[in-house]
């Protein structure tokens, strides 16, 4: 059984923009799936539909054998706990410490009152520190999150997602606001989580060189439709022009 099945998913925004047009694909356990496509092709919309931050207009989402397209309330929150997400803008809470930010990944399993009073179970503290070690910044646990560099903040965001012990990790252009060297640093941690911790990853990416290096499979979106599906090696120059348009030139990121 596949981990995730997307069937004929469509999204029309209230203003009439059709961001996704009948998108279907499956994600097997352990995959590192890259989603590529021009700006505005619907990549972010797709990821946000998967964990239901955005309500899809039609189609269905089946996760781990269960239809989650229309679940609500507690069921939706339990579903989201199984899926970590990281963002281009990191979205840490800058005024809180790194450790507190990581602990926020466990909010789903802590009562509202306990979380507001900062009472997290001891094993969550241990787990948070271990996750900070995985991404290599345990020494920064007690500094304010907004005092870190971009690459460090993204690693904190990864540690926060790991608190959910996610079956699936969604990454929306995780390195788009980082410099090339830092980008590789962050991507390597994602690769580690994928292979060593067995976490399935769906990652929106802009640079094909990163796709070729880290992804096991690729889908390409264009105007909200899937126009390519295959392994990174299969993206020839012809495919590249088809996905990105005739004027596009590939840039390398090393």
């Amino acid at each position: 059984m596949a981990l995730l099945e997307i069937n004929a998913l469509s999204k029309v925004y209230p203003n009439g923009t059709q961001a996704l047009r009948s998108v279907s694909f499956t994600v097997e356990r352990g995959e590192f799936l890259a989603v590529i496509g021009l700006s505005g092709s619907g990549k972010s919309t797709l990821l946000r539909c998967i964990n239901r931050l955005i309500e899809p207009t039609s189609g269905s989402i089946v996760f781990d054998g269960a239809d989650v397209t229309h679940i609500k309330g507690d069921a939706l929150r339990r579903y989201r706990q199984q899926i970590g997400m990281i963002f281009q803008q990191f979205n840490l809470i800058g005024r809180y410490s790194v450790l507190q930010n990581v602990l926020m990944g466990a909010l789903g399993s802590v009562t509202t009152l306990d979380s507001i009073l900062g009472r997290y179970r001891p094993e969550l503290h241990t787990m948070a520190l271990r996750n900070l070690e995985i991404v290599g910044i345990a020494d920064k646990a007690h500094v304010r999150a907004d005092s870190l560099s971009g690459g460090q903040q993204q690693r904190v965001a990864i540690a926060r997602a790991l608190m959910q012990e996610p079956k699936l990790l969604l990454a929306d252009e995780p390195v788009a606001s980082l410099d090339p060297a830092t980008s590789h640093g962050v991507m390597r941690y994602l690769g580690y989580i994928n292979r060593q911790l067995g976490c399935t990853i769906i990652c929106n990416l802009h640079f094909l060189s990163l796709v070729r290096e880290y992804a096991s499979r690729v889908i390409a979106l264009k105007y909200g439709q899937i126009v390519f599906e295959g392994s990174p090696a299969e993206i020839t120059d012809d495919w590249f022009r088809h996905i990105y348009g005739d004027e596009a030139v590939e840039v390398e990121i090393r």
Binding site: Q81, Q82, F87, S115, R160, A161
Partner: peptide, 24 residues
């Protein structure tokens, strides 16, 4: 809205989303 999205995506309850995603 970014931090709100991030907190909501962890499976947090609405009050937690407001407390951690909005209040700071």
């Amino acid at each position: 809205p970014g931090p709100m999205e991030a907190i909501a995506s962890t499976g947090a309850r609405p009050l937690q989303v407001v407390w951690f995603g909005v209040v700071p």
